[in-house]
Simulated assay, not measured.
Amino acid sequence: MSPEARLMDGSALARTLVEQAARRAADLTERTGTAPCLATVLVGDDPASVTYVRMKRNRCAKAGILSRHVALPAATTTAELVGTITALSNDPEVHGILLQHPAGPHIDERAAFEAIAPEKDVDGVTCHSFAAMSFGLDGFASCTPGGILRLLDHYDVDLAGKHAVVVGRSAILGKPVGMLLLGRDATVTYCHSRTTDLASLTREADVLIAAVGRPRFLGGEHIKPGAVVIDAGSNPGNVGDVDFEAARTRASLITPVPGGVGPMTIATLLTQTVDAAAAQLNAV
């Protein structure tokens, strides 16, 4: 690793954010008599999804946030899923709703996401949240992009005027993180797996966000010397979208996988759940 390169420790920052969320949750519970509650919805029994939901529920418990888990069979229809989420949206005892992605190839996920009430969209997946985030209005950021911005702030990365390149265009990661960066006065370029001559664009990036979902998709040749590299990839074997060993000799700051972006996603989810509960209980 070059002397300038530093690891961006998402695990350490996430612990601090979760501790803050826990203190706020305890204060809210004491003042209102109601603890923040996050409802998790899981369709089917995909092992990775089951693990992710269990992890999020465990984090909730440690932060003093109640969790209500709704497990639905794999054969659940879109209409049934929408009905379940609508009921949770209308339940005053639930303050945040998380639909674990992916819900299954037969599910219209967009229809399911849109059944989440905006004030309970603590995962930032609805069109309402995306629009609010894009226009700089009150709303919830998508959790992984929101966690990335918190990480950049913690390491004092000044985004104004910088060229940020986002590799990936998913609705819950690539697209929203680009809008958040734009809101910080960065100049943003979106790329993806079909971009022609990708390296010529990524080498221009002062801040490179890898969110394409392909293991080690970006190598050292893709990285401008001194760039800040955020690897939001999560692939089998705890491998990111960036070839870490090659990238860390060129980057000034880089996130590891695991221990970089992942913990920040959960910390942001818990923070936004407490925010949502405080607003709904008129106890901001």
Rank of each mutant, 00 (worst) to 15 (best):
G147T: 04
V167E: 10
L152H: 03
L181I: 06
V165N: 12
H154Y: 14
R169Y: 08
G174H: 04
L159F: 10
L181W: 00
F135N: 11
V157C: 00
L173K: 00
A171C: 03
S170L: 01
M179C: 11
L152R: 00
H154L: 03
R184A: 13
L152Y: 01
S170D: 01
D138C: 04
L181D: 03
Y155F: 14
L181A: 04
V188T: 09
F140L: 02
A164T: 09
P176H: 07
Y155A: 02
L180Y: 07
V166W: 02
D158S: 14
T144D: 12
L149Y: 06
A160E: 15
I148W: 00
G147I: 03
A141R: 10
G146A: 14
Y155W: 09
L180M: 15
G161Y: 09
F135Q: 12
L152A: 06
V167M: 08
R169V: 14
L151E: 08
G178W: 01
A164P: 00
G136L: 03
F135G: 06
H154V: 01
K175Y: 10
L151S: 11
V157N: 04
D153W: 05
R150D: 12
H163D: 08
D158N: 14
S170C: 03
G174T: 07
P176L: 05
D138H: 09
A160Y: 03
G139D: 02
G178A: 08
D185C: 13
H154W: 12
S142F: 01
L181T: 03
G183N: 08
L137A: 14
V166K: 09
V177H: 05
T144C: 07
G168E: 04
I172V: 15
H163P: 05
G146N: 11
I148P: 00
D156A: 10
L151V: 13
L181R: 00
A141T: 10
L137T: 10
D185V: 12
G139Q: 01
G139M: 03
G178N: 10
S142V: 03
D158W: 02
T187V: 15
G161I: 03
K175H: 13
G136F: 05
L151Q: 10
I148N: 04
G147L: 02
L181V: 04
H154S: 12
A164S: 11
G178F: 02
D153A: 13
R150M: 13
A164M: 08
R184D: 11
I148K: 07
L159V: 12
G174P: 02
D156S: 11
A171E: 13
G136H: 03
L182F: 13
L151K: 07
V167C: 08
D185R: 12
G146F: 04
P176S: 11
A171T: 12
V188N: 08
V188H: 09
V165H: 10
D153L: 07
L137Y: 05
G168L: 05
C143P: 02
V188C: 08
R184Q: 12
I172H: 05
A160S: 15
G136R: 01
K162N: 12
G139R: 00
G136A: 09
L137K: 07
T187Y: 10
G147W: 00
L182K: 06
I148C: 15
L152V: 13
A171W: 10
L180S: 10
R184L: 12
G136D: 04
K175D: 06
D156T: 07
A141Q: 13
G168P: 05
L180A: 11
G178T: 09
